[in-house]
Every structure is written in C-alpha cells, then in structure tokens.
C-alpha cells in the first residue's frame, strides 16, 4: 500500500500517450483554471471516497537547460535555462496499490505543480479517469485550442498579400 506503483517506467511510447497528453495540458493551462476546475470536480466527489494524498516529493523549483540546434536542425547547443517546479504525490487507495502522480511545470508555481501531481495520480485510476478527463482535461485543452485559434486569426490578418494591387487593376 505504501509503495507507489511504478508501472510507468520503461513502458512504450504508445501506452504513455494519453498520460503525456494530460500532463501537457495540465502544465500549459493557467494555474487559476486548473484550480477552479479541480476544486469544482473534487467538491462533487462524496466524502467517503475523497482521495487521500501523501506528498512524496515536496514541490521544488529548479532549472531545465533549454537546448536548441545550430541552424535549427544541426547539432544541439545549450541555449539558456528556464525555471520549472516539480512535485510527486502518492494517492493512497484502500484495497488497491497506491498510485504515484508526477508534475513538472514551467515556472515557479508550487501550488500548480502540487495540484497537477495530484490530478496526474487521479487520472491514472479507473474511477476518476473518465470523469476527470471530461470535467477538467478536455475543457482545458479546448480552451487552449480556442485561445490559439483566436491568436492565429489575428496573426493571419498580418499576412502580406503581394497581389492586392494587381487584383485592383482587373
């Protein structure tokens, strides 16, 4: 019960794909939105089955060295660092193996990293996966896509149309 499962290590890429996707969504979403949706979701969970977490690795801020490539596609080089905050929690479960949840989130927001680690653990359990994807991950992904699409339309309006004058003469 106290040993977190380590089913993730070394598993093939395909198997990890859904988890990579929700971890990316949780990392990129604004912390306030993750918190709002997570709070709403957890309030709806009956007290009897409320998840119990143990912090395995307290949220800690460190650095990731960002690498680029010479010429965009050549040899790698170290470009500069960025801040990142990581956290690991364990979801305790009665009558089932504990589940480890991890988070690495750009920036220095410890609450965001802690919450993302808890959600990562919950998302790995059969009971929470479906509802949490629907209540949290999918809406966050949708919001990100909407923000991106709106930005792409505004950026698209700055595209140079070299043929405007020619068309005007028609």
């Amino acid at each position: 019960m106290t040993t977190p499962s380590s089913t993730n290590a070394g598993s093939p890429t395909g198997e990890d794909a859904p988890r990579k996707q929700w971890m990316a969504v949780l990392a990129k979403a604004p912390a306030k939105r993750v918190e709002a949706l997570a709070t709403a979701y957890l309030e709806g969970v009956a007290d009897a089955v409320a998840p119990r977490f143990r912090v395995l690795r307290r949220p800690e801020t460190g650095l990731v060295m960002v690498r680029g490539r010479a010429g965009g596609t050549g040899d790698p080089f170290n470009m500069g660092e960025m801040t990142v905050t990581r956290c690991t929690v364990v979801l305790e479960r009665d009558g089932a193996a504990a589940v480890a949840g991890h988070a690495y989130i750009a920036g220095r927001d410890r609450a965001h990293a802690t919450l993302a680690a808890k959600l990562d653990a919950l998302l790995q359990t059969d009971g929470h996966h479906g509802p949490l994807m629907a209540a949290l991950v999918e809406p966050l992904a949708r919001e990100a896509e909407e923000r991106r699409a709106a930005r792409r339309r505004r950026v698209g309006a700055t595209k140079v149309d070299f043929f405007t004058l020619v068309r005007g003469e028609d």
């Binding site: 990392a27 990129k28 990731v64 991890h102 690495y104």
Partner: peptide
C-alpha cells in the same frame, strides 16, 4: 513546447511552452 524525460517517468513530457525568436 519544451520537453524533458524525467528518470522517474521514463518517458518524455511537455513542461510548458516558451517564446523564441530565430534568425537564419
């Protein structure tokens, strides 16, 4: 996106996005 492969996970994850300017 910026991706790392933490040892404890054993696979690559996205930790966020950064803005860059590139000149060729």
């Amino acid at each position: 996106p910026v991706c790392i492969a933490p040892e404890e996970l054993g696979f690559e994850i996205e930790i966020g996005e950064i803005e860059l300017t590139e000149c060729q």
